[in-house]
């Protein structure tokens, strides 16, 4: 497994520092592409994509924020980590869904902490959910599944594009998923990464950019499920 990282900074010394810290983190995990000119990075995005972006916030002619906006235009989810000397500007960065920022000078502890979270967020060992239905074998990445809905013996698997159907016991189902999944109701198991809102007795899931769906939370699961949701989402932020 290799993580593709784009590093963009116009100061060679800083780039070298980041490079060394990445190698120190894991000498074989990253495949790094370095851009001294942000425009080159934008060009390369047309044919390439990256798992993590590490960007300088301040360029002579262009704001790091604008680059980030272009990145977000093509790629919605890859974590962006900003490098900056001025914390005052960082609040503008929430628009591009900044994953984290590192205040200069860059240190090992700061960068490694951010990488830890980014890797956790990327969920690299991309586990699959496998099942057969009507004698056809399916294998879906768990990160594509929004929620499971149980109806008597059947299990409906909802993804952003499709709904699949299979047969499972709840226990067997829960043992096949990772800890991103939380049971909120006897017949519903949701993926915390798709949660948009939590209300008193419903949880709203993002289906795509425009659509959401409300899933009921039952009294039995409420307290425990809410805590699980908090702890899981906290892992990505902390």
């Amino acid at each position: 497994m290799v993580i593709k990282v784009a590093i963009c900074d116009d100061v060679p010394i800083i780039v070298k520092e980041i490079e060394e810290l990445l190698l120190e983190y894991d000498s074989s995990l990253f495949e790094m592409d370095i851009f001294y000119n942000p425009l080159r990075l934008i060009e390369s995005l047309e044919e390439d994509t990256y798992d993590i972006f590490i960007l300088d916030m301040e360029f002579p002619n262009l704001l790091g924020l604008e680059i980030a906006e272009t990145i977000r235009g093509n790629n919605y989810t890859s974590p962006i980590i900003f490098i900056t000397s001025f914390k005052e500007y960082m609040e503008k960065a929430f628009k591009v869904n900044t994953f984290d920022y590192i205040l200069k000078p860059i240190t090992k502890s700061k960068l490694h902490a951010a990488l830890n979270r980014a890797i956790k967020y990327l969920d690299l060992n991309e586990s699959k959910f496998t099942f057969t239905f009507n004698k056809v074998f399916y294998s879906l990445p768990l990160s594509d599944i929004i929620y499971f809905e149980k109806n008597k013996r059947k299990v409906f698997i909802h993804t952003p594009s499709d709904t699949y159907e299979t047969i499972f016991h709840t226990k067997a189902l829960l043992s096949k998923v990772n800890d991103n999944f939380v049971q909120v109701h006897t017949s519903f198991v949701v993926n915390v990464r798709y949660i948009k809102q939590v209300r008193n007795n419903t949880v709203t899931m993002k289906v795509n950019d425009k659509q959401t769906v409300d899933i009921p939370i039952s009294r039995k699961f409420k307290d425990h499920a809410k805590k699980q949701i908090l702890m899981k989402l906290r892992d990505f932020i902390y």
Binding site: I195, K196, Q197, V198, R199, K226, K227, I229, L230, M231, L233, R234
Partner: peptide, 22 residues
Amino acid sequence: HGGIYNQWFEDNRYVVSILLLD
């Protein structure tokens, strides 16, 4: 406000965590 509250002990630290969604 649609948030979640949790508190726990971690070694000799007391932690309160609040997540406000959306």
